[in-house]
Amino acid sequence: MKRSIFMLATALSLTLGAAGAQAAVSPLDLVAPIAQYKVYVTKELDAFVAATKDFTDAVKAGDLAKAKALYAASRAHYERIEPIAELFSDLDGAIDSRADDHAKKEKDPTFTGYHRIEYGLFVTNSTDGLAPFADKLMTDVNDLQARVKGLTFPPEKVVGGAAALLEEVAATKISGEEDRYSHTDLMDFQANIDGAQEVYTLFKPLLAKDAKNEAFLKKVDANFASVDAILVKYKTADGFESYDKLSKKDRKALAGPVNTLAEDLSKMRGLLGLK
């Protein structure tokens, strides 16, 4: 009998707790973590501009080996801050669209940006004809930096960004379609996870103020640790293993915790009163 009383009381407190969840965090508590997130994004963008400069310089200098080597690490900065970067639809299309987004795929003249250059470097295996794409990419990346500087970050996009990044991983990275020419997907993958973890870490102290969130935080921490533990197995001296080396089973092992994380992190907006 005591057991059932306990369980009923638990059920009751859960029901009531769900109704009162929004009151736990004051809107003003969100200001500092959002500001810190902008500081993070700004630093990543500074690094992205510098890395894109090195990458496009190598492309324009015709240094195929160097351009190939710089490709994955330079675009990782973009992948970390995608929740904000992709708010600018025109630049997102110009910098990060895939061939599939264009009618004539790889041959489409509007196909530009990182993946267009990736196609040249890794499929055509040459820097020939890539200089105009390199110049345009650099211009677009500079433009992105300027626009983000002037942007007031929408709170719900910041908090929702953690889940958005994981959904992105689940939807396009596991299949290997993002970096289909270079197979550097794991670098993007890690960058998306890092970006999500940054958002989560910034808001975690607020969530931890409410004892009801303890189980949630524990679970999210554990799943981040699982994903990191899997990824670390594929780390090499200068990046990650080529994604085409991962078996179906390997990919599936990644999908599990990633999907759970995406689902759990999508609750953050509600828990922080940003429905």
Partner: peptide, 17 residues
């Protein structure tokens, strides 16, 4: 509503930083 001020306040904090 108070919620509407979060974005501007965060941006202000970045500028102050």
């Amino acid at each position: 509503a108070l919620l509407a001020f979060i974005g501007p306040l965060a941006e202000y904090q970045v500028q102050l930083l």
